[in-house]
């Protein structure tokens, strides 16, 4: 554990709390892509299958349980509790175009041909593109509630912080995880456009609006 990874994990936690807070206070999941949230459930469940086989630390185990539980809770909020506020007609990104290629990549690039390793690899690739339905929705509507942009910023910050973590681990432990690093760089790259608008508009007190 180093400071970058810890701050990244805190940022990830913060993003989830911001999202739940947004849905509960506005009593609406407007502007949130159900598809992205559903992919996150798939990501956490497939990645944390080792919850039953590998013990790393109390921190590690609690975070895994929290991520699985909170992502399922968000799906419940969207599909049951605040269902009428979820508009599938603007959530049109085709998730199957993500899952297919990620499954192929997982079969080619993994750390061992076992069910858990291939699913772990799949979860890494899937996480790297999970935000696309959400960003696509943002692009389509051209605007977002400020709280939603804070959610995305925290999620993007989590990914960005994992990069110095990997650099640190390379020099301090000689540890390199090429699958995580490659997918992580791609994932962080997807946020660059969003971050540009977030820093130049939202943090200057303006509304998140994309040019027409």
């Amino acid at each position: 554990m180093n400071i970058f990874r810890f701050l990244g994990d805190l940022s990830h936690l913060a993003s989830i709390f911001i999202l739940i807070h947004k849905i509960q206070t506005t009593r609406s999941c407007r502007g949130i892509s159900f598809k992205t949230q559903a992919v996150y459930v798939a990501v956490f469940v497939t990645r944390y299958l080792d919850l039953f086989t590998t013990f790393v630390s109390v921190y590690n185990t609690s975070m895994k349980i929290f991520f699985i539980a909170s992502s399922c809770y968000i799906l419940y909020l969207m599909k049951v509790r605040f269902r009428p506020t979820n508009d599938p007609s603007i959530d049109t990104f085709r998730v199957e175009y993500l899952v297919g290629p990620c499954a192929v990549l997982a079969l080619i690039f993994n750390y061992g041909y076992s069910v858990t390793e291939v699913l772990w690899s799949l979860s890494i690739f899937l996480e790297s593109v999970a935000i696309l339905p959400q960003l696509f929705m943002l692009q389509r509507t051209g605007e977002a509630e400020t709280i939603t942009t804070h959610y995305l910023a925290a999620l993007g910050a989590y990914r960005a912080l994992y990069i110095p973590n990997w650099i640190y681990r390379y020099f301090s432990e000689g540890y390199v995880d090429p699958i995580s690093v490659t997918a992580g760089l791609v994932q962080t790259g997807l946020y660059l456009d969003f971050f540009y608008v977030y820093f130049t508009k939202v943090l200057q007190g303006q509304k998140f609006e994309l040019p027409a």
Binding site: R5, R47, V56, Y111, G112, W120, Y162, Y175, S180
Partner: peptide, 10 residues
């Protein structure tokens, strides 16, 4: 390989 010691990152 990283998986020798399990995946310790989240």
């Amino acid at each position: 390989l990283p998986s020798d010691s399990g995946h310790d990152e989240l």
